[in-house]
Amino acid sequence: MKKMILAALALGIFASSCSDDDDNNVVNSNSDLILNFDGLEALGDDYVYEGWIIVDGSPVSTGTFSSVDFPQTFSVDSEQLDNATTFVLSIEPAVDTDPAPADTKILAGDFSGVTASVDSNGIVADFSTSTGTYILATPTDADDSNEESGVWFLDNSSGAAVTGLNLPTLTAGWVYEGWAVIDGTPISTGTFTDPAAADDNASTSMFKGDTSDGPAYPGEDYLQNAPDGFTFPTDLRGTTIVISVEPSPDNSELPFTLKPLADMVPTDAMVHTTIDLEAGPVSVISGVVTRN
Rank of each mutant, 00 (worst) to 15 (best):
P59D: 01
S248W: 11
A161V: 00
V271Q: 08
E92W: 01
G150N: 03
V242E: 04
G164Q: 11
A102D: 00
S244I: 10
E92Y: 02
T104K: 03
W152D: 12
T185W: 05
D263F: 08
T204A: 06
F74C: 06
D235T: 05
T73M: 14
Q224W: 11
G57H: 02
D144Q: 13
G159W: 01
T140H: 13
I91G: 11
S16K: 04
G39K: 14
G184C: 03
A100D: 00
A137D: 15
Y222L: 10
F65A: 00
P281C: 00
Y176W: 10
K208W: 05
V242Q: 11
F256G: 14
E220Q: 15
P93R: 10
S75A: 14
P168G: 15
M1V: 10
D183Q: 02
I123Y: 03
S29A: 08
E147K: 11
P218Y: 09
D213R: 07
S244K: 04
T131F: 10
F230E: 10
G164V: 05
D228K: 01
G214R: 08
T290A: 05
L167K: 03
D144T: 14
V282N: 08
A15G: 15
P266Q: 04
F14P: 04
T129C: 03
T240Y: 04
L136F: 08
L258K: 07
D200N: 15
A8N: 05
P218L: 11
P71R: 05
V151P: 04
A279S: 09
P186V: 02
A7W: 05
V48K: 04
S248P: 13
P168A: 11
I182G: 02
A108K: 05
I123V: 12
A137G: 03
D276A: 14
A84N: 05
A15N: 11
E246P: 01
D144V: 15
V284I: 07
S252Y: 09
T73H: 12
S128P: 11
S149F: 13
I53K: 00
N30L: 07
G63A: 11
V284E: 13
S283T: 15
F127G: 05
A7I: 14
M4N: 14
I285Y: 13
A142S: 15
N251H: 14
E148V: 12
S145N: 01
T115C: 09
H272L: 12
T204Q: 01
I106P: 10
